[in-house]
């Protein structure tokens, strides 16, 4: 079986439509992961009894179990149980976001731990209020340092989005599977899908590496 250029050109628009969905899920998931991860890191650090341990257990549990099963659990069990009417896209993006928040929490924690003790001491000596210490002193120093790591997680999230086809999200791979099933020709759609992933994630990872080098030079 040979490569059919006409067929490849024919399926490309559909695949690009799917790519847009993949993008959207990655963006929504990333935003959730960035915010929720910071919240998790805060709770762990504040050492609020019970809540802190619950978050720790949750984070470890989520990181040790497959995302796909978590997606199913959220879609088939938790979401109907709570009486929500989320679409499969929304459910999937939220699952992605929460899963990756458990990774970004660790990134934020490491970033905050890397702030020299002197900064905390100086903030205390100036008797800055708690909120100013965080928003004015600690986070402005910690966040730039963790940006490359957050970027890496966004790239890996982009590559994990296709598993949302299991709950019916029609993303790039969903489209590839769809057009492949219609014509019984899988070679072109899946090869193009793979190349599109490579075409986007490879330059993105180079950009992140460059950012990493710049951040390292500054500190």
């Amino acid at each position: 079986m040979t490569w059919d250029w006409d067929y490849a050109r024919e399926v490309l628009p559909k695949l690009l439509e799917g790519l847009l969905v993949t993008f959207e899920a990655t963006v929504v998931g990333s935003l959730i992961a960035y915010v929720l991860g910071l919240v998790f890191a805060f709770i762990r650090r504040s050492r609020i009894p019970v809540l802190s341990q619950v978050v720790w257990l949750f984070v470890e549990f989520v990181r040790s179990t497959p995302l796909l099963v978590q997606v199913f659990f959220l879609y088939y069990v938790l979401q109907p149980e709570l009486g929500l009417l989320w679409t499969s896209f929304l459910t999937g993006s939220i699952a992605l976001g929460v899963h990756y928040a458990c990774y970004t929490a660790e990134v934020y924690r490491a970033g905050i731990d890397a702030i020299p003790v002197g900064q905390w001491e100086a903030a205390t000596a100036l008797s800055l209020p708690r909120s100013r210490v965080w928003l004015g002193v600690i986070l402005p120093q910690a966040v730039p340092r963790v940006l490359p790591a957050l970027g890496n997680y966004t790239i890996s999230m982009f590559k994990e989005t296709p598993l949302l086809i299991a709950i019916g999200v029609v993303d790039l791979v969903g489209e590839a599977r769809g057009v492949g099933a219609q014509s019984y020709r899988y070679v072109e759609p899946f090869t193009i899908a793979g190349l599109l992933f490579l075409l986007l994630s490879y330059p993105a990872s180079i950009l992140v590496r460059r950012l990493e080098r710049r951040v390292n030079r500054q500190h």
Partner: peptide, 18 residues
């Protein structure tokens, strides 16, 4: 650089054809 799900489909659906 590519998604694991794509690799899975590729090896399962495309390689047998090739």
């Amino acid at each position: 650089g590519t998604s694991e799900v794509v690799q899975l489909f590729w090896i399962y659906l495309v390689v047998p054809i090739l």
